[in-house]
């Protein structure tokens, strides 16, 4: 007979809380939850982690800059989305001196000619610029290309798992 008790290896995995981050949304965790977001095309996921404070956050942005469109949803844009996530993480105890960022997404699988650089490329450029202005280093990234991605940020370790539809998954 199989005995089920609390010590089985898989139980901690299944008990780890999972928070879904939609498009133009963000989540912050101080309890080591998994933060997930799916179906990034030209959109970008920016994962941030402050190991010392045990605070992790993920934002799913769609467009480079809030200056372009009159919209009050800060999490929709790379510039305001990052600022919003940083300030929410600071409120949860993180410090910009310790926050490290990982970035994934921003593909340009479709070529819409008349608009110059694709939105994916411009999203990546904006993220680099905004993070640089906040002195937050990008410690790893998986951006560009022509495929979609789904992300899982482990709030305990800061590991970011990047899964693509046809190229498997990797931890960055």
């Amino acid at each position: 007979m199989k005995v089920y008790d609390g010590s089985s290896g898989t139980s901690t995995e299944s008990q780890q809380e999972r928070l879904k981050v939609g498009i133009a949304e963000y989540e912050v965790t101080t309890s080591g939850a998994n933060l997930t977001t799916s179906g990034l095309g030209s959109c970008l996921g920016i994962a941030m982690y402050d190991e010392a404070a045990g605070v992790a956050g993920l934002v799913h942005v769609m467009l480079p800059s809030a200056d372009e469109v009159d919209d009050t949803n800060e999490a929709k844009f790379a510039d305001t989305g990052i600022e919003l996530l940083v300030s929410e993480m600071e409120r949860a105890g993180a410090s910009t001196r310790h926050i490290e960022a990982k970035v994934a997404g921003g593909s340009d699988m479709l070529d819409f000619s008349q608009n110059g650089s694709g939105i994916g490329v411009r999203n990546v450029e904006q993220v680099e610029e905004t993070l640089d202005s906040l002195n937050i280093p990008i410690v790893s990234q998986d951006v560009g290309g022509d495929h979609g991605r789904s992300l899982k940020l482990d709030g305990n370790s800061g590991d970011l798992t990047v899964k693509s539809a046809n190229k498997g998954s990797q931890i960055i």
Partner: peptide, 9 residues
């Protein structure tokens, strides 16, 4: 690709 990733661009 993933449906959402096709639509988001």
């Amino acid at each position: 690709d993933m449906g959402q990733a096709i639509m988001d661009p």
